Simulated scan of single mutants.
Amino acid sequence: MNNMNRNTARKLLAVFAHPDDETFICGGTLAKYAAEGADITLVSATRGEMGRRMGNPPYLNRETIAAAREHELREACDCLGIRELIFLDIRDKTVEFTDEESLTARIEDLIRDINPDAVLTFHERLGGHPDHCAIGKATKAAFSRAGRKDGLYYISFGDMMAVPERFGYTRSDIVKINVSEHLEAKLAAFRAHRCQSEIDEWVWLPDAEALARFGMHEYFIKTELAAPLVNDDDLFQSEDSGAVFAFES
């Protein structure tokens, strides 16, 4: 993408905890927006070096897993169309113990520098893993400190937000993204995360069978203080959000 298009493209910043968060949770959405010309930056707090999956059969150890997972994440980014990858170099399973002020300041600097139109992160209570919740809490604080209000979304797992009332939300709080045309890219990214996905036999079935395991939609929760949604099927909340802004030339 040339500099002119990069400056005019919609920008999406995803701030997650581990390699594979981007793919396993919202890979279809990232692939969709990348295909539409969005400029996507992914932040991974850790390199996932404390992950329990070491390949199937195991071929990694604590000394080699970090480099392997970084390499796999870079391959997954290529599959999804993510332009830039940034590591915060925090040790896996210690994000919750990282100095909160320092972590928030680092993310605030990224938000101010990138000036994204939308930011994705974990819900600070529904994240499901201490690292997830901690990075989500810091990102929410950083977003507010950067003077931003609209455009921050929490990711969710699977179709849990198809019925948001179970979690204290309403349908007006949820953005539902149709990812049906981008599942091939999502599957390729799953397979790029080889050491984490080899144990899941379905990922390695013939393509048609593996693709059938994916849902057609991914769900996102708008933050509590954000304005009402303009569109409930798009993370870019503008009246003309269906337009394609910029493609690589």
Rank of each mutant, 00 (worst) to 15 (best):
M1Y: 06
T8R: 09
L12K: 01
L13P: 04
V15G: 00
F16P: 02
E22S: 04
T23K: 11
G28A: 08
K32V: 11
A34Y: 00
A34R: 00
G37L: 03
I40A: 03
L42C: 04
V43W: 03
V43Q: 13
S44V: 09
S44R: 03
A45Y: 05
T46R: 09
G48L: 11
G48Q: 06
E49A: 12
M50I: 07
R53G: 10
N56D: 15
N61Q: 09
A67C: 07
A67M: 10
A68L: 00
H71G: 12
R74L: 12
A76F: 01
D78I: 14
G81Y: 00
I86M: 11
F87C: 07
L88A: 13
K93C: 15
T94L: 11
T94Q: 14
F97D: 14
T98C: 09
E100Q: 15
L103S: 02
T104S: 12
R112T: 02
P116Y: 07
V119P: 01
D131E: 08
D131G: 11
C133P: 11
I135K: 04
I135Y: 02
G136N: 01
A141H: 05
A141S: 06
A142I: 04
F143D: 02
F143M: 02
S144N: 13
A146D: 10
G147P: 04
D150V: 11
L152Q: 09
Y154S: 13
I155T: 14
R166E: 12
T170P: 08
T170G: 15
K176L: 02
K176C: 13
N178V: 06
N178Q: 10
E181D: 15
H182F: 14
A185F: 03
A188T: 10
S197K: 04
D200T: 09
D200E: 12
W204F: 14
L205F: 05
F214N: 09
G215A: 13
M216W: 08
H217Y: 15
Y219R: 10
I221E: 02
D233W: 05
Q237L: 09
A246L: 09
F247A: 00
F247G: 02
F247L: 14
F247M: 12
S249H: 07
